[in-house]
Write a protein that binds this DNA or RNA. Structure first.
Lengths: 243, 243
DNA sequence: CGGCAAATTGACACATCTCAAAGCCTGTGG
DNA sequence: CCACAGGCTTTGAGATGTGTCAATTTGCCG
């Protein structure tokens, strides 16, 4: 399946695509590349020439801390169908890198083609814009979660969100999904020490809310997990609307 | 001064505006409204019909927590020149409200006019897009700060950022600015208890880094404050570039 | 002057971090 | 098939950061 299929599904869940919009998306020339776990997909750079969509696996936006080379913070996770670094198209530079979480495959689109879309197709342009704004809404929700939830609930929120996003593009069902995240990476996402993340995982397990072995996650009690996390998917903006 | 002047300065700091772009911005029909401290400027709503730019004072994006009516989290602060809820133009709904921090004045722009810009002026459209992406970059930096800085350094980071943003649009100089933030609001921003925020403020004062009385903040030692906060303004994307 | 909201302080409880060590998986070479 | 190495996970104990509660002080405004 071409990545654009996932991305088209992502868009169509939120608005109707005209024939013109669809045709242009399908005609995009792209380059597919596969990455090993931990590899850098997009480096910190200025004036990037292309952006990537997620095709398979997961990726993350990783911020290196100044003066502490071995520490980093992950500010976003991306699932298939996400236009991962579309914001690099409009910004002068990326202040973070994009790395593979587990084995991952992405598809690159040149900025020339994106510029052409903005010149010709206002509606599709607004939908691309929308995709970056949903990322921003997720950032805000992560801020809310970080400020208002204790460790177990915070982890629960992340799991609810990832499942909701995977499910929305048809990449997960039955409350099961692959999550090849190391606990160290989870710590970089949630802002805890790896040890504390481990305790949070155990807590959710002990409460009978999840099963997690290797990269396999099963949500045993969706309602319980969502209640603990106070999860409300409104922020993912998955609503049909004219944009 | 019309708000558009601040916003135009915001844009011109980052790219060249064509005569057409400028003319369209200057021709925007807007409605100015003033608000008292704490008042709601934009409610939680679906399918908003207008968005607002910051003219005077400060505003914040406030998230009500589900099931805890008296608690909230603030995920963004806006200074004059910011197009505060421009994201409401493309999203189906806002999951937060916008409130006044101290006395504030904003200028509303109808979404009809924004739609027209996206139909006619691709370059200006990309610049509007950029403005929302800079907000997203600020969200990410807040996530990094929350995950990697202890309370005093976290507060220091916020002060550095606010000053940098005010200074960038000419709304502050000499390391002094008005910051009519209650410590309770500061707590909602940083994710600490008001008591702990108070300790952080005192710490920065005791170290001789800032003076803060009433709404008046003076940064006594910019270098020291920025070092403590590991502040690097790159994420504000204040660079001339073709977009 | 009085009243109220905000800022400040102290003491104690709870959450999370750090360091250290032990257990578990998986791939590899003998 | 087994032994081993290495990375990841899990556990424990003590140090530090932050939250909560209660009380006092400050500053503003009527």
């Amino acid at each position: 399946m071409a990545i654009t299929d996932y991305f088209i599904r992502y868009l169509q869940r939120r608005d109707r695509l005209s024939d013109k919009d669809l045709a242009r998306l399908r005609a995009l020339r792209t380059e597919q590349v596969a990455y090993a776990p931990g590899e850098v997909i997009v480096p910190v750079e200025r004036h990037a020439q292309r952006s990537c969509m997620m095709l398979r696996g997961l990726s993350a936006r990783s911020h290196q801390l100044v003066g502490r080379p071995e520490e980093r913070v992950i500010t976003a996770l991306h699932v298939p169908g996400d236009f991962v670094d579309l914001h690099g198209f409009v910004l002068a530079g990326l202040e973070h890198s994009v790395i593979a979480i587990g084995p991952a495959e992405v598809e690159f689109v040149s900025h020339d083609q994106l510029t052409a879309i903005t010149e010709d197709l206002p509606h599709l342009t607004r939908l691309l814009w929308m995709a970056t704004l949903i990322d921003a809404a997720v950032h805000r929700q992560w801020l809310v979660a970080a400020a208002s939830l204790r460790s177990s609930a915070h982890l629960a929120h992340l799991l609810c969100e990832i499942y909701a996003r995977l499910h929305a593009v048809g990449a997960a069902s039955d409350h099961r999904f692959a999550l090849p995240l190391l606990q160290r990476e989870l710590a970089d996402i949630l802002g805890y020490s790896p040890i504390h993340v481990n305790r949070a995982v155990r807590d959710l397990r002990d409460r009978g809310l999840i099963r997690w072995s290797g990269a396999d996650v099963t949500i045993l009690d969706w309602k319980g997990l969502a209640t603990l996390a106070r999860f409300d998917p409104t922020y993912l903006d998955m609503e049909q609307a004219r944009r």
